[in-house]
């Protein structure tokens, strides 16, 4: 059933590819404890900060988008971001589920 490239995700991706937008792919690569989205879950972000898909239940998306825009700006090809309960950033963005997740973000180009 796991389908990280679902219909909505594919439609958005196709639109952005057609218009040659800069895109960043974010993938959940590790989880500990309770996390709302399984390993392999994906989100795609364009240069304007528009996004489709998800990597959590809305807990860390804003921080992930910020990081994605940052790697586009600095032209860093990829980066690993960890969200832990002890991590200040996670509190700020509200990882209320008590889990930990690692997200891998990469430019598609």
């Amino acid at each position: 059933m796991n389908n990280s490239f679902d219909k909505k995700f594919l439609e958005k991706t196709n639109d952005w590819l057609k218009t040659n937008q800069k895109i960043v792919l974010a993938t959940v690569i590790q989880t500990w404890g309770s996390s709302p989205q399984p390993v392999g879950s994906k989100m795609i972000i364009n240069e304007n900060g528009d996004f489709s898909g998800s990597v959590s239940g809305g807990c860390v998306e804003s921080a992930v988008i910020r990081e994605c825009l940052e790697i586009l700006k600095k032209n860093i090809p990829f980066k690993k971001i960890e969200f832990k309960i002890s991590n200040e950033n996670a509190w700020e963005v509200g990882l209320a589920c008590g889990g930990e997740i690692t997200i891998y973000i990469e430019q598609v180009k």
């Binding site: 490239f5 594919l10 991706t13 196709n14 590819l17 792919l25 990469e106 430019q107 598609v108 180009k109």
Partner: peptide, 15 residues
């Protein structure tokens, strides 16, 4: 990720 790999993922999904 290279664009061509990303496009191949989409192609494989569709096929």
């Amino acid at each position: 990720m290279e664009l061509k790999i990303f496009q191949e993922i989409i192609k494989n999904k569709n096929k």
